[in-house]
Design a binder for these strands. Structure first.
Length: 465
DNA sequence: ATGTAC
């Protein structure tokens, strides 16, 4: 008798172990394998009849699992989507709108909005904002949980030599999938000592990876770049003018990716009868153990991602020998509990910047276009959100197919950009014009300052620029 | 996004 016999009967998750334990006891009582399997079949068919037996614990777990399934299946999709507001509809591909429509048909959906950088993603589109009640959607947060931006403005003129900036980035940042910091370079951080790591087997398991990778940047659209930050008028305690600044885009690395993967699978298991078109929008109820576990892991991944930025900025500030005048950061892949009207809802921002009234946020353009420090206006219909960047206008493969390397190189040269790494799939031409995107959301955020990249580091793409 | 499943 082993786990395979048990799972073959149809037992799942925790029930497998419980069934094995009960089978062992029955075996010791002298029953044969066939007899035990027969009894287990009986328990599976009618768990409520085995309350007082050796199978009591197993039966209770099965009943709980059945209840979970019923919950997930109790409310079907709405026939039509709840209404939601769209910013910059002329910039948004139909596929992204279709995904948002689907999200607004979920029984747990209450409100939503689509930002002008929106494009197709898994489940919820990138640039999608979705408020649910009592439930959280792993793919409503995204694969890179806590993906975020950080800006440091230094008390230095914006004339750092490109060669020096390049050396600093090469020495103090780490890019690439799977990369970690060398053992002797590794730094500790408060977040690694959070008691939450001990609360779940998954988090315990992922702690070592998190400790190895902290302070790294990863791959894809993540970057670290020196540039000039321009403040048109005095603000935030700074005089108007140009400053040297560092802008970074990073996330929760392998740790967050595995948390996302795990809980997405759990959510999909819970909603097996959900319309296949909404499969990637499977949710977890917050009043379940799993929902709470995801919330805890997601929150930890959000703080871990910001800790990555802190270490990147800490290393570079030390190397420059300066203390920043200003440090701003924001997550743009996360869910928050937020008061919406008279209810507390779960607001998912998947590639959307929190933009409550007065709150600072960072909206990057591309490796060769300006990014912006913005101040939120707290627009209610946008659930106090804005775009998280320019947004893709070409998918990665489409960019590699259609963009000409010489055109990309010329674009960088014309703007005086020094690039380390970088792939054609991340070329400026693969993104919407940041000016267009900002123009469509002037009622969501006001511009405070402009950051122009000068020396940019990214992971190497499959096709170098 | 990650480097492929506790």
């Amino acid at each position: 008798m082993n786990g395979k016999h048990i799972t073959k009967l149809g037992f799942q998750k925790k029930a497998v172990g419980l069934a094995l334990a009960a089978a062992q006891i029955r075996g010791q009582a002298g029953l044969g394998q066939a007899e035990i399997l027969g009894e287990l079949r009986g328990v599976l068919a009618a768990p409520s009849e085995y309350g007082g037996s050796v199978y009591a614990e197993l039966a209770a777990e099965l009943l709980a699992q059945q209840e979970q399934e019923r919950r997930g299946q109790s409310a079907p999709l709405r026939d039509s989507p709840l209404p939601y507001s769209v910013w910059g509809a002329d910039l948004i591909e139909p596929g992204a709108t279709a995904q948002m429509d689907m999200a607004m048909r979920l029984p747990v959906a209450r409100a939503g909005a689509l930002m002008p950088d929106a494009h197709v993603g898994y489940g919820l589109p990138i640039g999608g904002v979705l408020a649910t009640e009592g439930a959280v959607i792993p793919y409503g947060v995204g694969v890179d949980i806590g993906c975020s931006m950080m800006l440091s403005v230094y008390p230095l003129p914006a004339d750092l030599k490109a060669a020096e900036a390049r050396q600093l980035l090469l020495k103090h940042t780490r890019f690439g999938a799977g990369v970690s910091f060398e053992k002797r370079e590794r730094q500790d951080h408060e977040v690694l000592h959070d008691p939450a790591w001990q609360d779940q087997a998954l988090l315990k398991y992922l702690h070592a990876k998190a400790a190895e990778q902290i302070g790294t940047s990863g791959s894809g659209n993540h970057f670290a770049e020196f540039g000039s930050f321009r403040l048109a008028q005095p603000d935030l305690g700074l005089e108007a003018g140009e400053y040297l600044a560092l802008l970074t885009h990073s996330g929760s690395r392998g740790f967050g990716a595995q948390v996302a993967g795990h809980f997405t699978r759990v959510a999909e298991q819970r909603h097996k009868r959900l319309d296949p078109a909404a499969k990637k929008l499977a949710w977890l109820d917050l009043d379940t153990e799993e929902g709470q576990a995801y919330w805890q892991a997601m929150t930890l991944a959000g703080r871990y991602a910001l800790a990555n930025h802190e270490q990147i900025h800490g290393r570079l500030a030390r190397a420059l020998g300066v203390t920043p005048l200003l440090n701003v950061s924001n997550s743009h892949n996360l869910a928050w509990k937020q008061q919406v009207g008279d209810r507390e809802l779960v607001v998912h921002r998947k590639g959307a910047t929190p933009a409550e009234a007065g709150r600072l946020g960072l909206i990057p353009g591309s490796m060769a276009d300006p990014g912006y420090l913005v101040r939120g206006r707290g627009h209610a219909a946008a659930l106090a959100s804005a775009s998280h960047g320019a947004g893709r206008q070409l998918g990665r493969k489409a960019a590699e197919r259609s963009l000409v390397k010489g055109d990309v190189q010329r674009y960088l040269e014309q703007r005086g950009i020094t690039l380390i790494g970088g792939g054609v799939d991340e070329a400026p031409q693969a993104y919407k014009r940041i000016e267009d995107v900002l123009a469509r959301q002037s009622d969501l955020v006001e511009t405070v300052g402009e950051f122009m990249p000068r020396v940019v580091r990214m992971d190497t793409g499959s096709q170098d620029i």
